[in-house]
């Protein structure tokens, strides 16, 4: 006989929705702060690593990489997996591309990449910093979807990838958007943080009157690490001496440093980015506006079409 149960509509809805929302947040749209990667990115890099596609090796067909990713780690659609791979290789999308692409990987005009049977790829040198020491028990591994392989929970990540390449993700009930930054600036900022670290001993049973171990030349029985708190005294303003702002792969100019301070202090803020352009007089005395850099994630051909429309609608006068 059929086993018929009842389920209350609000309980059913809340459960379905919560499972969906949390899975999207944890395992799809929001990157891990440690390596700055979403699961799809991490699995792509790991699969390429396992295929031996280091930056010194020969390229392999993207179709083969996508097959490896889908078959072993990421049970999703092939086009989605290829799009992920392509984006990692685009120098106009990534401040520091993690994948080295051979062939047509799309353009800033929004042209699509060639099909994965044509294109080839391997890891960039910088990705190897993210993957370094993976086999030395640096990170935890978990079984893949059919428990036949293992995959890393995060990459060891020698680089602060989240800050370098930024991220953009819309989950459920929450979203994230972090702009890319300059490697040299971020490293300088990190050095400053480390220089200003303060190790504060915490009082405990064994050591009711904590002393500052950094002042002692020799410690016979060093206290345990967990008995200390490690904090940096660097302020946002100080750090901004080094990291002056985002560094977009497409260049362009940021307006308003006040907004930047707000964004870096609170994690929330908006920044205005303007294209870099100069007015040049050509030989026959006419002036031209030459645009050399456009804001990040702007589609160039759409932008040109919009400018043309503005001229057509007489909102911008054609000057002589």
């Amino acid at each position: 006989m059929e086993n018929q149960q009842t389920t209350e509509i609000t309980t059913e809805m809340k459960k379905s929705y919560l499972d969906y929302a949390m899975s999207v947040i944890v395992a799809r749209a929001i990157p891990d702060v440690k390596d700055g990667l979403k699961p799809s990115h991490r699995r792509t890099l790991y699969a390429m690593h396992r295929l031996g596609l280091s930056h010194g090796s020969a390229f392999k067909k993207c179709a083969r990489i996508v097959g490896e990713v889908l078959g072993k780690y990421h049970p999703h659609g092939d086009m989605a997996a290829y799009d992920t791979l392509v984006r990692l290789a685009q120098d106009f999308s990534m401040r520091y591309p993690l994948v080295w692409g051979q062939g047509n990987f799309g353009s800033v005009d929004g042209d699509p990449p060639a099909h994965m049977r044509y294109t080839e790829a391997k890891l960039q040198a910088i990705s190897e910093e993210l993957l370094a020491d993976l086999d030395k028990e640096t990170v935890d591994f978990i079984p893949n979807f059919d428990a036949t392989e293992e995959e890393p929970v995060v990459l060891p990540a020698n680089l602060p990838n989240l800050l370098l390449n930024g991220t953009d993700g819309i989950a459920v009930g929450m979203a994230t958007k972090i702009p890319p930054h300059n490697l040299a600036e971020v490293i300088d900022g990190l050095s400053f943080i480390i220089d200003n670290l303060k190790l504060t001993p915490l009082a405990d049973e064994d050591n009711p009157h904590p002393f500052n171990i950094l002042n002692l030349p020799y410690i016979p029985n060093p206290p345990k690490v967990e008995n200390f708190s490690l904090n940096s005294e660097a302020t946002v303003e100080e750090l901004m001496q080094f990291v002056k702002g985002p560094d977009f792969p497409t260049g362009a100019q940021i307006y308003g440093t006040k907004d930047l301070l707000e964004a870096y202090s609170t994690g929330r803020g908006s920044i205005l980015v303007r294209a870099k352009a100069e007015v040049v007089e050509n030989k026959n005395g006419r002036f031209q506006i030459i645009v050399t850099e456009i804001p990040y994630q702007q589609n160039k051909s759409t932008l040109i079409a919009q400018i043309a429309d503005l001229v057509k609608d007489k909102r911008v006068e054609e000057s002589l």
């Binding site: 059929e2 018929q4 149960q5 209350e8 509509i9 609000t10 809805m13």
Partner: peptide, 21 residues
């Protein structure tokens, strides 16, 4: 039908259901 389990969706409290949605 002999072996499966199905769950009938019921509404216990209309106000609460409305708020939940």
């Amino acid at each position: 039908p002999e072996t499966r389990t199905v769950k009938k969706i019921t509404i216990a409290d209309a106000t609460q259901a409305d708020e939940t949605f």
